[in-house]
Lab assay of single mutants.
Amino acid sequence: MSAKKSPEELKGIFEKYAAKEGDPNQLSKEELKLLLQTEFPSLLKGPSTLDELFEELDKNGDGEVSFEEFQVLVKKISQ
């Protein structure tokens, strides 16, 4: 996936994966893993990378990643 996506496209991608289980407005760690493996495969170099990335993105510590938290990752990789 190209990092150059419109905000609407990014929101659609986020919602597609977030709706798989639990809260449709939040990504669980498994949903984030699936999204990254599919859309940004070069970001995941191993299991520790996912854990570190999830911890970094989950700013409020609720165990899930909101769209706002996800946007931090998108901004970081599009620079």
Rank of each mutant, 00 (worst) to 15 (best):
S6I: 04
G61Q: 10
K16H: 05
E55W: 12
G22T: 02
I77E: 03
V65S: 04
E15L: 13
P41G: 11
K11D: 01
M1F: 02
E68K: 12
V74H: 08
K11P: 01
I77R: 02
P47I: 08
K75Q: 04
S48V: 09
S66R: 08
K76Q: 07
F54M: 12
Q26T: 06
L35H: 00
E21A: 11
I77S: 03
N60W: 05
P24Y: 06
E21D: 15
L44C: 11
K76H: 03
E39S: 01
L73H: 03
E52C: 04
I13F: 02
A19S: 12
L57M: 14
Q37W: 05
V65W: 10
L32M: 13
L53S: 10
N60G: 13
K16F: 05
K59D: 10
A18D: 00
N60Q: 08
K16L: 09
L35A: 12
Y17T: 01
K16G: 02
Q79W: 05
K29H: 14
L50D: 06
Q37E: 12
V72A: 09
K16S: 08
L10P: 01
E31W: 03
S2Q: 11
S42D: 08
L32D: 00
G63F: 04
L53W: 12
K45M: 11
V65I: 12
S2P: 00
E15R: 07
S66V: 11
G61P: 12
K16C: 04
E31C: 03
E31M: 11
A3Q: 10
A3V: 15
E31D: 14
E9S: 06
F14H: 00
Q71Y: 03
S42Q: 08
K75L: 08
E15V: 08
F70P: 00
P7T: 15
V72R: 06
Q71S: 12
F14T: 00
E39G: 00
L57Y: 13
E21R: 04
Q26D: 03
P7S: 12
M1P: 00
V74I: 15
D23Q: 08
D62G: 09
T38I: 11
K76D: 04
K11W: 01
N25H: 12
E8V: 07
E39W: 01
E69F: 02
K5I: 14
K75E: 13
F54A: 11
D62L: 08
T49V: 07
V74F: 14
S66T: 13
L57G: 04
E9N: 09
V65K: 03
S28C: 06
Y17Q: 01
E8N: 04
A18M: 03
S42M: 06
E15N: 08
F40G: 03
S28E: 07
G12W: 05
D23P: 04
E55H: 12
G22E: 03
E15A: 08
E15C: 03
T49P: 07
S48H: 09
Q26G: 09
L53N: 15
S42R: 07
L32P: 00
L53I: 14
L43G: 08
K59M: 15
V65A: 05
L73V: 10
G61A: 09
V74N: 11
L50M: 10
L57D: 15
S28Y: 01
E31A: 04
T38H: 08
F14Y: 13
F70S: 01
I77P: 03
T49N: 04
S42E: 15
A18I: 02
F40P: 00
M1V: 01
E30A: 10
S2L: 10
E55M: 11
E52G: 13
N60S: 14
E52Q: 09
L53H: 13
P47A: 15
E68S: 05
F54Y: 14
S28K: 08
L73G: 08
F14L: 00
E39H: 07
E64L: 07
S42W: 05
L32T: 07
S28M: 02
Y17R: 01
L36E: 00
G46I: 11
P24V: 10
E68V: 12
E15P: 00
E39D: 03
L32K: 00
L27P: 00
E64Q: 15
K45T: 11
T38S: 08
V65L: 14
L50H: 06
G46R: 11
G22V: 01
P47H: 06
S2F: 15
E8I: 09
F40K: 02
V72D: 06
L36Y: 02
I13G: 00
S28I: 01
S2A: 04
L34D: 15
P47N: 05
M1K: 02
E30R: 13
E52P: 08
E56I: 02
L44W: 15
K4M: 09
Q71C: 05
L53K: 09
G63C: 08
E68L: 05
L10K: 01
E30M: 13
Q71W: 02
V65Y: 15
G63D: 11
L32Q: 00
D62T: 08
E52R: 08
E64P: 12
P47K: 05
A3C: 14
K45Y: 07
F40M: 14
K5S: 09
P24S: 14
G22K: 08
E52K: 13
F54N: 14
A19E: 05
E56G: 11
P24W: 02
V65C: 07
K20R: 12
K29Y: 15
P7E: 13
E64N: 09
K45N: 10
K16T: 05
N25P: 06
S48L: 10
S66W: 01
I77F: 14
G61E: 15
G22P: 02
K4L: 14
E68N: 08
E55R: 11
S48C: 03
S28G: 04
Y17E: 01
L73W: 12
G22C: 01
K20T: 10
G46P: 08
L50V: 15
S6A: 02
N25D: 07
V65P: 01
G22R: 10
K4I: 15
K11M: 03
K4R: 06
I77V: 03
K76C: 01
E9M: 09
L43A: 12
L57E: 08
P24Q: 12
F70K: 00
V72T: 14
E64V: 06
S78F: 02
D62H: 08
Q37F: 10
L34Y: 10
E21P: 01
L50C: 14
S66Q: 05
F67P: 02
M1N: 02
P7F: 06
P47R: 07
S66I: 05
E30V: 15
K5G: 10
E30G: 07
Q79D: 02
L50F: 09
K59T: 12
I77G: 04
A19V: 07
T49D: 05
D58S: 13
G12P: 08
E55N: 05
E15D: 08
E56T: 11
G63A: 10
Y17N: 01
F67W: 08
E8M: 12
S6G: 05
G46H: 13
K11T: 02
